[in-house]
Design a protein around this nucleic acid. Sequence first.
DNA 1: TTGTATGCGTTATCAG
DNA 2: CTGATAACGCATACAA
Lengths: 387, 387
Amino acid sequence: MAVLAFEIATHAALLRFRAKDGIDSVGIDFWNMKASMKKPKTSDMGSVPDLRVEGDGRPSANVTLTDVARVAGVSPITVSRAINRPDIVSSRTLKQVTQAIERIGYVPNLLAGALRSNRTRLVAAIVPSIGTSMFAEAVEALSDRLSEAGYEVLLGLSGFNQVHEDEILSAALSRKPDAIFLTGIQHSAWARKQLLAARIPVVESWDLTPSPIDMVVGFSHDGSGRAAARHLLSKGYRRFAVIAATDHRALQRRDGFLAELEDQGTKAAVILTHTPGSLELGRNAFAQLLEDGIQPEAVFCTSDPLAQGVIIEGQVRGVSVPGDIAVMGFGDFSFAAHIHPTLSTVRFDRRQIGRIAAEAILAELNGMPSVERIVDIGFTVMEREST
Amino acid sequence: MAVLAFEIATHAALLRFRAKDGIDSVGIDFWNMKASMKKPKTSDMGSVPDLRVEGDGRPSANVTLTDVARVAGVSPITVSRAINRPDIVSSRTLKQVTQAIERIGYVPNLLAGALRSNRTRLVAAIVPSIGTSMFAEAVEALSDRLSEAGYEVLLGLSGFNQVHEDEILSAALSRKPDAIFLTGIQHSAWARKQLLAARIPVVESWDLTPSPIDMVVGFSHDGSGRAAARHLLSKGYRRFAVIAATDHRALQRRDGFLAELEDQGTKAAVILTHTPGSLELGRNAFAQLLEDGIQPEAVFCTSDPLAQGVIIEGQVRGVSVPGDIAVMGFGDFSFAAHIHPTLSTVRFDRRQIGRIAAEAILAELNGMPSVERIVDIGFTVMEREST
DNA sequence: TTGTATGCGTTATCAG
DNA sequence: CTGATAACGCATACAA
């Protein structure tokens, strides 16, 4: 008996299927067309096309450029051009291709394109954490700028731990990113080697070094600590305490602070907390300070969350800021102004780091070698005594 | 002249190769070896191998699996297995391969593998923003769990804007992620269609719906607002104000709050701010409230940053919390406890959303269909009157 | 402006 | 446990 042609309606479109026997089927049969036009595989010769029809009746084979080409009546490379360089394709062809894409629901496979072209349009961003908004804003600025330019961000969270950074880096490099954004300037020898071997733009950040792997965007932590000390000294304070987290950069800020004090013949009590500094750690540290009987006139905290904690703990214990004690924080650009009406802070623009890193990466990828390979974004001392 | 065989000792192993012309060349020449052993390309026949030697003298051609195979004296597929399924390779072979990898600095190309296997080990996470730590912690928890399992996160920032979400989604899907994490339950028809067509696990989050695209992990915003209202009512307050951001979920919380009040025969003044709510917006809103002559006993803010702003503005204006006015926030799990000693809040665990989403994704990818496709992580009312 | 032939580096499949 | 072969989907090089 003759095989019947039937139509199956789906929520998306009408698909016509042809039954096997060369029968008089009607209309377009995109899927069978696709299968039947493939070069015969030795193992497939004359067998049933592999349509792998699934539960809902739709085939699961991927829609490819070639399928679009067939529907549009052009060659695959023309479709590729219509997508990537629409300007060099005739408007008529472009329209046909666009319609075909729409019609069969084509989603380009960047994997394949990247493999062939050796350009992934992917930038890996490796930061310790994004939970505390410390690095998150930089990543956000980076991503915003890069996505404008058609790049996407592969996120790697290294968690303040160098072994883990190496693992994350290894995983990231296997994706063949076009560029990479790193936090800090301290990386394992292995990491440096891999980074160099990858031969892609590398931006280190948050700190400065005269010898970056490739480029560096950051500011001086020693300088920040010193600036905090000078500020407090200039306000007339003479008895100090420092509450510092224990990561490399926080310790540099502490050391800068202490060094500046020492230059002025002064010292400070130091309390260390874990990294990253948090409000809770700040509270605890300040509580400890008071319980140790230390009575500073001013406390420098290596990060704003620690400073917030000091202020909160002060409120709870009836210590007023800055009446009884001055508190100086570090880090936040737009937020610090509001943490507490009287909190002074050394601030830098987190987003600027991401922004500049993105520009540097794009410049390098576009073959305009950036003039500056070392960018100091600086910092400013922000004083607030009242609102 | 006869072709000679040489044995050369290296720091890692013995490499055997034959010099081409009977020349007495000594030393390892991995790269020429590589080139000379390639199948001749038509265009390359007899010509100089394309080594593109660069400044440092090293060729820039990629080191591939095949190179490793050659050095290890096995077939490429064996190298692949040694990397991906070391358990099914003999320990002797494994060792050879490992050494070869180390020796020539091989970095696997996941692009190629993904293309062939149709598995990218990539999960796309699309959130409005990570700058405010709102979604950042969820993404962090997601990433932490996924990277344990060998997956990486492609970050997409949609910026509270649906058009942009579609663009980001489109870009993400072109990377063929194995799964996708989305924020919210409101997506364009186009987005839903693409997501369905991708046939990958999809987790929507932060909200609940009886009809998720695939899975959803979140909590009730209406319920949160109602809970806040009940809490404040139970404390005896009767005159209310609400400061709300204008995104979908914040408005649901506001509506829940108002609905609960209405059930009790009460009302509230409402002030709207932009999204996302920030400390600064909270300050401004509260200032406006006071200047409008509104004298609430309690203010419900749809997010904690707004509540912080209210508290700060209150401090500046000499309004004490909760002496003069009670403030209730929303959102933060671990942080809210410290914002202000007297701030009450409706809290939920951001990290839990990421964690559960990751587990759901992994379960689905490993073929164990998760029992729960709708996960309500709930929320709790946190009351703090003093520390 | 469009098309043809080829290969990117890996893994699925099947064979030993 | 190991290997030969082909294919994933696209973009480069060159030709028309």
